[in-house]
Design a binder for these strands. Structure first.
Length: 933
DNA sequence: GGGCTCACG
DNA sequence: GACGTACGTGAGCCCG
C-alpha cells in the first residue's frame, strides 16, 4: 500500500520505551542464565499492549519503532559537551538494547536506527515525509524535544498517560506555538541534554521574549532594546551560544533515509516467530497471552541451566563460581554428622532456614541449609511433603528425610556453641524459627546488618540485591519454586531436589557475602556501630516480637461497627450534596465531582493529571461548600476502620491472642526501625476517634502497660550537635522549649506567651530538624511565604549556629558522600551532588539524618541494655515507637520498672557521648496503651 | 503495580 | 529569577 492521503503513520520512540520499562520494573533476569531482561520484558509488554490497542478507525496504517544508534551523534561535532551530563548507562541495561530490536522485529514492526543520528532526527524526517505525502502522523513519545514537530497533521501521544499532545498542549508547556518551540529551547537551554542556552533564562522568560519579538533572530537583532539590564546583557553576550543551542535543539527533517514509508505498512505479527522469541526470553506470561490470542498452545519453556557469575575481585574465596548442582542433600544421620564435624573444624557456618511462610510466628520449619566454605553447602530437608497442595493431596512426608527432632537434637549443640559463629542473612527470622523449636542460636553474625552498617543509604540490604551487587550473581528466585499469586505453593511442597539448589545456594551466598563484608567493617570504621547497635538488637527484637501485645478483639470489632454506621450516614449526605452517587473513596471520582461538576475553585492537577484531593486541599475547600468537610470525616473513619479496627483483628495470633509485629532493622536509612505486619508504630493518637483504638491494646489481668518516651529528643540532639548555647541552657533549665524559642524570636516575654505564637515557634523548631524552607514552613503554618521566610531569617539571626550546622553538614556530605551520627553510624548520601529539584531533597535529608539517626542510635542503645536491667523484674519489653518503649509489667513492679528503664533510657548515650543537654524520659501507666501513653 | 492518601515519630 | 520543597516510615484503596 502506498503512503498518501488517508494514511496514518505511528512513530514510536523506542528509547523512551526502553528506559521507562527499565525503570518501571525490578531487575528481572532470565531464569536459565541470569541474563538481565527486565527492560526487554517491559518493552515487549508495551509493544503487546500497543498492538492490542491498534483497532478502530484511528488505527495506524503504517508504523515503526525508532531507536538511537549510539550515544555519539553529529551534534557532538557542533558541541562536544552535548548530553555530556547524562549519567552512565546502568550496567545491566546496555546488553538489553539489541534484544529490544529483536523484539520489535519479532512483533513484525519496522525497526529503524541510523548511525550518527538520534532517533529524534529520524522521527523528524519521517514525520515531514509523511506530512508532505498528505498523511497523518502520531509520534508515540512524551519527549519535549519532539514537540517542535507538532502541527499540520502531526501530533504526539503520551502512551503512559494516554494523553494526546497537539498544538494546544505544546503551547501550554512552552508558552509558544510549536513552530517557535526551538526558539524557546535555544534560550532556556536544557540541563538534561547539557544545552547551554542563555544563562538565567528559563522557559517562562524565553516564551515571554519570543512572544514579544516574534522569533529568535528578531529578538537577538533587537536585544539592545530590552529594558532589563541583565537580560539585555545576557542576550548580547551569549548570542553565539544561543545560536549554537538552537542548532542543537533543531531536529533534522532532511536526513537521507534508505527506507520508504511504504515499507512501514502495518503487518500482522507472525505468531510462530513472536512466540519463539518470547519463549527464548522466558517471558512465560506474555508467551501464554500471545499463544491464547493466536489460538495455539504455548511452546514448552526451555530447560533451566546453571548460572556462572562473574568473579568478585576482592575476596578470592567468594569469587568461585556458584554452582547449585554441586550442593549436597543431607538425608540421613551419618551425612548430618559429617557436616557437624566440618562445622567444628571450620569454626563458623552459614545457616538458613526454609519455612512454610514469611510470618515467623506462624510458619513451620521445613528444612535447614548450611555452608562451611564458599561453594560447600548443603540442605537438610525435614518436613517436605509429597503430592499437590490441594485438599486431596496426601500429607505424607517425602522419603529420605531425617526426623525433625533428631536433626534438631544433633544441631542444637552446634547452634548454641559459644565457640562456633553462626552466620545468617536477616538472622532475626532464623533466630525466631529456632527459638520456637527450643534452640537459642548464638553467637551470630548477620550479613544484612553488616551491609547496613557498611552501605546504609546506598541500596537495600536484601540478599538478592547484595548478591547481585557484590557477587555478580543472581540467586535462584523463590518464585521459580513457589510460583506466585493464587497458585503459589508453600516450601514444604517443593521437590527436595529443587529445594536443595535454592536453599543451599542461599547459605552459600550468605557465607560469601560475610567473607566480603566482615573485613570491610574496620576499614569503614563501623565495627562499633555493627557490634554495639546492630547485632545485639537481634535477640532483643526477636524477644519483643515473640512476646507480642494483647489486643482486645471485642473493642476493635465494636469500633468497626460504629465506624461503619457513621460512614454510611456520611456517604448518604455526601451523595445528596453531590446530587449523584459515586465512590467517595476514589480520589479520581471525587475530583471530578468537586471541580468538573460543582465547579469549586482551585482544582490543581498533579503530575499525573489527576485533581489533588488531599486533606490540605479539602480543608481549604471546606469554606466553600459542605461536601469537602464530610469527605474528610468519611476518610478519617474509612482509614481507621480499614487500616486499624478491621485489619488489626486479622493480626491477632490464634494461639497467643496477641499481635506480633515484625521490626525491620535495616529498612530505614537513618537507623530507625520500621514495624510491619502489622505496623504498630503508626497506631492513631492525634485524633480523638483514632486515639480510642489504643484502648484495644491491653495488659492481661494483674498486669499494667507502661510507656516511657524521650521528651523532645531530636531538638535536644540538635542543640547539642549544632552547639546552640541558648537552647542547651533552656533544656538544662527544664524550660518549655517552644515557648522559649518564641520568646527569643518575637521578643515576647515568657509570661505573656500566647498559644498561637508558641505554635509557630514549634513549627519552626521542627522545620529546622527537617532542613527548613520558606515554602515548607509557609505551607505548614498556612501563612504567606514571605512571612515564613522572615521567621526563618529571624530564627537564623537569633541562633546562627543552626545555619552553620546546616552548611557544615551539607559540605561534609558533599566531601565524604555520607553523614555521621554522634555514635558513628554512617548514612550515605549518594544524591548529594544531584542537580535540579533532587538537590534540595538530598540536602534536607543530609541535614536531618544525623539528628534523626542519633536519636535512633540512642534508643537502640537503651533497648539493648534494657533486658539485663529488668532481668529480675516481672516485666517484658513489647514495643518500640521511635522515641517510646512500651512494657507489660506485673502491677507490683510497675514503679520499680519505670525507675530502672528510665535510668537506662536517660543514660543511653553514656559512655560514648557526653551530651551537653540532659535526656528526659516521661512515663505513663495504664490498663491500656491509651492510658499509658 | 503505581499513585494517592493518611496513620505515626 | 528557574525549579520544587519540609525528614523518616507502612498500609489500604483505587484504577489501569
Amino acid at each position: 500500500m502506498s503512503f498518501g492521503k488517508g494514511s496514518h503513520l505511528h512513530l514510536i520512540d523506542g528509547s523512551a520505551f526502553i528506559f521507562r520499562a527499565y525503570h518501571a520494573l525490578p531487575p528481572l533476569t532470565r531464569k536459565s542464565d541470569g541474563l538481565p531482561v527486565g527492560a526487554v520484558a517491559g518493552f515487549c509488554n508495551m509493544l503487546f499492549k500497543y498492538v492490542e490497542g491498534n483497532t478502530g478507525p484511528d488505527a495506524p496504517t503504517h508504523a515503526a519503532v525508532i531507536f538511537d544508534f549510539s550515544s555519539k551523534t553529529f551534534r557532538n561535532d557542533i558541541y562536544p559537551e552535548y548530553k555530556a551530563n547524562r549519567p552512565e548507562l546502568p550496567e545491566d541495561l546496555r546488553p538489553q538494547f539489541p534484544l529490544t530490536r529483536d523484539a520489535t522485529r519479532a512483533f513484525n514492526i519496522s525497526c529503524i536506527e541510523v548511525e550518527d543520528f538520534e532517533a529524534d532526527d529520524i522521527i523528524a524526517t519521517l514525520s515531514c515525509q509523511a506530512r508532505d505525502a498528505g498523511g497523518r502522523v502520531t509520534i508515540i513519545s512524551s519527549d519535549k524535544d519532539l514537540m517542535q514537530l507538532v502541527g499540520d497533521g502531526v501530533e504526539m501521544l503520551d502512551a503512559m498517560k494516554n494523553k494526546r499532545i497537539g498544538p494546544d498542549e505544546v503551547a501550554e508547556k512552552f508558552g509558544v506555538p510549536p513552530n517557535r518551540v526551538i526558539d524557546v529551547q535555544a534560550l532556556a537551554g536544557d540541563s538534561v541534554d547539557n544545552i547551554p542556552g542563555a544563562p538565567g533564562i528559563g522557559v517562562k522568560t524565553a516564551a515571554l521574549l519570543i512572544n514579544e519579538y516574534g522569533d529568535l533572530e528578531s529578538l537577538l537583532a533587537r536585544a539592545a532594546e530590552i529594558k532589563q539590564p541583565k537580560r539585555r546583557e545576557t542576550l548580547i553576550n551569549f548570542a553565539d551560544q544561543i545560536r549554537i543551542s538552537k542548532r542543537l535543539v533543531t531536529l533534522d527533517c532532511t536526513m537521507p533515509l534508505d527506507m520508504t514509508l511504504e515499507s512501514m505498512e502495518v503487518r500482522e505479527p507472525d505468531h510462530g516467530t513472536l512466540l519463539e522469541f518470547l519463549n527464548v526470553m522466558e517471558f512465560q506470561t506474555l508467551t501464554r497471552r500471545v499463544a491464547d490470542k493466536a489460538g495455539v498452545t504455548p511452546p514448552a519453556p526451555p530447560a533451566p541451566a546453571v548460572t556462572l557469575p562473574d568473579a568478585a575481585p576482592e575476596a578470592p574465596d567468594a569469587a568461585l563460581p556458584i554452582d547449585p548442582a554441586a550442593y549436597e542433600a543431607v538425608r540421613d544421620i551419618d551425612a548430618l554428622h559429617a557436616w557437624i564435624d566440618m562445622i567444628y573444624e571450620q569454626g563458623h557456618v552459614a545457616v538458613d532456614t526454609e519455612t512454610t511462610g514469611l510470618d515467623e510466628m506462624r510458619a513451620d520449619l521445613v528444612g535447614i541449609s548450611l555452608a562451611t566454605a564458599p561453594g560447600r553447602a548443603c540442605y537438610i530437608p525435614l518436613l517436605h511433603r509429597t503430592g499437590g497442595d490441594d485438599l486431596f493431596a496426601d500429607n505424607t512426608l517425602t522419603e529420605g528425610q531425617i526426623p525433625l527432632e533428631d536433626a534438631l537434637r544433633l544441631l542444637k549443640p552446634v547452634l548454641e556453641d559459644p565457640s562456633i559463629l553462626k552466620i545468617g542473612q536477616n538472622m532475626k527470622y532464623d533466630a525466631k524459627m529456632f527459638a520456637r523449636n527450643g534452640i537459642a542460636i548464638a553467637p551470630i553474625d548477620d550479613t544484612m546488618l553488616l551491609s547496613y552498617a557498611l552501605h546504609g543509604g546506598l541500596h537495600g540490604h536484601g540478599m538478592d540485591a547484595l548478591s547481585q551487587t557484590y557477587l555478580k550473581h543472581i540467586p535462584i528466585p523463590i518464585k521459580s519454586l513457589l510460583g506466585s499469586g493464587k497458585a503459589a505453593i508453600t516450601f514444604d511442597r517443593v521437590p527436595v531436589d529443587d529445594a536443595v539448589r535454592y536453599a543451599a545456594e542461599d547459605a552459600d551466598i550468605t557465607l560469601r557475602l560475610w567473607h566480603l563484608f566482615k573485613p570491610r567493617l574496620h576499614r569503614a570504621h563501623v565495627t562499633t556501630v555493627y557490634e554495639t547497635m546492630e547485632r545485639p538488637l537481634i535477640p532483643v527484637l526477636a524477644q519483643m516480637e515473640m512476646a507480642g501485645i494483647e489486643v482486645d478483639r471485642e473493642v476493635l470489632s465494636r469500633m468497626s461497627n460504629t465506624f461503619s454506621q457513621k460512614m454510611a450516614a456520611l456517604e448518604a449526605e455526601i451523595h445528596a450534596l453531590a446530587g449523584e452517587t459515586f465512590n467517595v473513596g476514589s480520589p479520581k471520582q471525587l475530583g471530578e465531582i468537586l471541580y468538573d461538576k460543582m465547579g469549586l475553585p482551585g482544582g490543581k492537577k498533579g503530575k499525573t493529571g489527576a485533581y489533588a484531593t488531599g486533606a490540605d486541599v479539602l480543608e481549604d475547600l471546606a469554606t466553600e461548600h459542605d461536601l469537602p468537610g464530610r469527605v474528610l470525616d468519611w476518610r478519617q473513619l474509612s482509614k481507621l476502620k480499614s487500616t486499624y479496627t478491621d485489619a488489626l483483628q486479622d493480626h491477632i495470633h490464634p494461639d497467643t491472642g496477641r499481635v506480633h509485629t515484625s521490626y525491620v532493622i535495616a529498612g530505614a536509612n537513618t537507623g530507625r526501625l520500621a514495624s510491619t505486619d502489622p505496623n504498630l508504630q503508626n497506631i492513631p493518637i492525634r485524633s480523638e476517634d483514632g486515639r480510642r483504638i489504643r484502648t484495644a491494646f491491653v495488659a492481661p489481668k494483674g498486669k499494667k502497660l507502661i510507656a516511657l518516651d524521650y521528651s523532645q529528643i531530636e531538638l535536644r540532639i540538635l542543640a547539642h550537635i549544632a552547639d546552640i548555647e541558648a537552647l542547651k541552657q533552656a533544656f538544662r533549665d527544664g524550660l518549655d522549649i517552644h515557648a522559649m524559642t518564641a520568646s527569643e524570636m518575637f521578643g515576647v516575654p515568657l509570661d505573656q506567651m500566647t498559644p498561637d505564637v508558641r505554635r509557630q515557634a514549634k513549627a519552626i523548631n521542627f522545620g529546622v530538624i527537617y532542613g527548613i524552607s520558606g515554602f515548607g514552613l509557609a505551607r505548614n503554618l498556612r501563612i504567606p511565604r514571605g512571612q515564613a521566610q522572615q521567621f526563618i531569617d529571624t530564627y537564623f539571626e537569633r541562633f546562627p549556629g543552626i545555619r552553620d550546622y546546616m552548611d557544615a553538614t551539607v559540605a561534609f556530605a558533599k566531601d565524604h558522600k555520607y553523614v555521621e551520627t554522634l555514635f558513628g553510624r554512617r548514612i550515605h548520601t549518594p544524591e548529594i551532588d544531584a542537580k535540579g529539584p533532587g538537590a534540595g531533597f538530598a540536602k534536607r535529608a543530609a541535614i536531618n539524618a544525623p539528628i534523626q539517626g542519633t536519636a535512633a542510635d540512642i534508643i537502640r542503645r537503651a533497648m539493648i541494655r534494657v533486658p539485663d536491667a529488668i532481668a529480675d523484674l516481672p516485666a517484658t519489653m513489647l514495643l518500640q515507637v521511635h522515641d517510646e518503649l512500651v512494657f507489660e509489667v506485673e502491677e507490683s513492679a510497675v514503679e520499680d520498672t519505670i525507675a530502672v528503664v528510665r535510668g537506662v533510657m536517660e543514660g543511653a548515650a553514656h559512655p560514648v557521648v557526653q551530651l551537653a543537654v540532659p535526656l528526659v524520659v516521661d512515663s505513663g501507666i495504664g490498663d491500656t496503651w491509651a492510658e499509658a501513653h
